Amino acid sequence: MKRLLLLTLPLLLAGCPKPADDTAATEAPTASAATTAPADASLLPKYHWRLSGAADAEGRRIDTLFVRAEQPVQLDFAQGRLGIANTCNRIGGGYAIDGTQLKIEQLSSTLMACADNALTTLDQEVSKRLEGTLSFAIQPANGMPQLTLTNSQGDVLAFTGYATAETRYGGAGEQAFLEVAAQTKPCSHPLIADKQCLQVREIRYDDNGVKIAGTDGFSHFYEGIEGYTHEPGVRNVLRVKRFRRDPVPADASDTAYVLDMVVESEVVKP
C-alpha cells in the first residue's frame, strides 16, 4: 500500500530544500552575538541552517525547540522563500532583507497530524518566534558560519550553517526523478565484498506531471544517494539533484546524487 504522497507532480517539478538529520549542539546563545557581527545576506541561501542554541530574553534555554536532538530545526533560504524542516509539518513563507533586519511574512504549513504532542507544540513554538521582523547576523564559529536571529520579544536563536550541495559542488544540479525498487541485489564491486546495490530506474514526467511512457528497466545503482537511507521492502520515488564532481574521486563516478525529497513511498509485500 502507498503510505506517502507529499505533493502533486506539477509542483514537484519546482525546487524544494531537503530536509537534514545531522546532530547539532544546543547551547544557549547570547543576545550580543546579533549586534556585534555584520550581516551578509548572500550567505543565507548557501547553507542549511540547523538550530544549535535558543534562549529567551532572560537567557533561559528554550527547551520546546529541541524535540529531536538528532534532527534539529532547519532553515533554508531560496529565491525569497524560507523553508523550515524537521518540524511536525513543513513550514514556510516569504522573506526579505533590509540591512540587518530579516522580515519574515506570516508562515503557513502543511496540515499533517503528529502523534507526538511535543512535535505539534514545536510547530507552534517555531512559527511564533520566527514571524515578523528579526535582527540577524552571520559570523564564523569553530570554522563554520553561525546565523543568529533575535526577535522582538528578545528570543535569541542560533543556527549553524552546513553547506548546501550547490555550494559544495560549485553550481546548480540537474533535477531528476528516480524510482528505487523495494529490494537491493548483489552486485560486483572491486573494493566492496558482497556489495548490495540499489535497483534504480529514472522516471520522466511531462510539464503536467504525467509519467512519460518508455522509462528504462531497473539496473544496479553503484553510487549512494546523499541523504537517502534505503529501507528493505519499501519502494520509493525520489526527487534528486545530480551534480558533476570535479575533481572526480578515484573510487567514485563523476556524478553525485543528492536527495531533494521523497515523492512517493510504498510498502511492497514479499
Rank of each mutant, 00 (worst) to 15 (best):
L12S: 10
S253M: 06
M1N: 06
N151Q: 01
P38I: 06
K185W: 08
V258R: 11
G93F: 03
T148K: 01
A28I: 04
G233L: 13
A25Y: 09
K211N: 01
P19R: 13
N151D: 13
I203D: 03
C16N: 10
P145R: 05
K269P: 07
R90Q: 13
G214K: 15
K195D: 04
T148D: 02
G170N: 02
G83R: 12
M1H: 08
G59M: 00
T30Q: 12
T23N: 13
L102D: 01
P232V: 08
D56L: 01
D216Y: 03
V262R: 11
A165Y: 02
A41Y: 05
I104H: 02
A256K: 09
P232E: 11
T87M: 02
D254R: 05
H230A: 13
P190C: 10
Y95D: 04
L11G: 08
S265N: 10
T35E: 12
A165N: 01
P38W: 07
G143I: 10
K269A: 15
N89Q: 09
G94S: 11
Q74Y: 03
R81E: 13
N208D: 15
T121V: 14
H230N: 07
V67F: 05
R235V: 07
C197H: 03
G15W: 08
L51G: 03
Q106M: 07
R245K: 11
Q101T: 12
Q153C: 00
A85G: 10
D194Q: 14
S108Q: 14
S219R: 15
S152E: 14
A118Y: 00
E202V: 08
A14H: 15
C16H: 15
L178G: 06
F218V: 02
M112L: 13
I212D: 03
Q106T: 15
F136Q: 08
D206G: 05
R129N: 09
E179A: 12
H189Q: 11
K103C: 04
R242K: 15
P145Q: 08
K18A: 15
N89K: 06
A193E: 13
D40G: 01
Q106V: 09
S52L: 07
A85E: 12
V126D: 02
S135C: 04
V267G: 05
L9V: 15
A33G: 03
D207R: 14
C197N: 03
L134W: 00
F66R: 01
G161T: 03
I97Y: 08
S253E: 14
